[in-house]
């Protein structure tokens, strides 16, 4: 699945990084707790979150996350958008709630990591 497929499945819009829309994504993680995200290890992931602060971008940077989907209509501010641009992270906004957004991507074949141990 590509970032464009994620965007289409969620009816989302690009905030930045549209030029990277053909990047492949292999897994996804949905959480408002960045502590949980940092315990999740998977290459080329998508992060779905309702949290909207600069630490979301930094967490994505540490985890090599290629795309962040802000759910529940959350909108990142200019500082966050600039940070994402500098790090080649695609930002998407979706009006879906977390459960529905995760479900739509799961239905399209995207999976999470293995169970936490």
């Amino acid at each position: 699945m590509t970032i464009k497929d994620v965007k289409d499945a969620l009816g989302a819009r690009y905030v930045c990084g549209e030029e990277l829309q053909d990047t492949e994504v292999h897994a996804a993680c949905g959480s408002d707790m960045m502590s949980d995200v940092l315990a999740f290890m998977k290459d080329r992931s998508v992060l779905l979150t309702g949290l909207c602060n600069p630490q979301v971008i930094r967490t994505a940077e540490m985890m090599d996350i290629v795309c962040i989907v802000f759910v529940r209509g959350k909108k990142p501010d200019d500082t966050m958008i600039e940070m994402a641009r500098e790090r080649d992270i695609v930002l998407l906004c979706s009006g879906h709630r977390m459960f529905s957004a995760c479900g739509l991507l799961y239905e399209k074949g995207l999976r999470g990591g293995s169970p936490y141990r």
């Binding site: 408002d32 940092l38 315990a39 949290l51 602060n53 979301v56 967490t59």
Partner: peptide, 17 residues
Amino acid sequence: IRSLGFGAGMGLPNMKK
């Protein structure tokens, strides 16, 4: 701090991991 996405008690265990 929890409202900012941290403070779930996962920091030190994750550092160890």
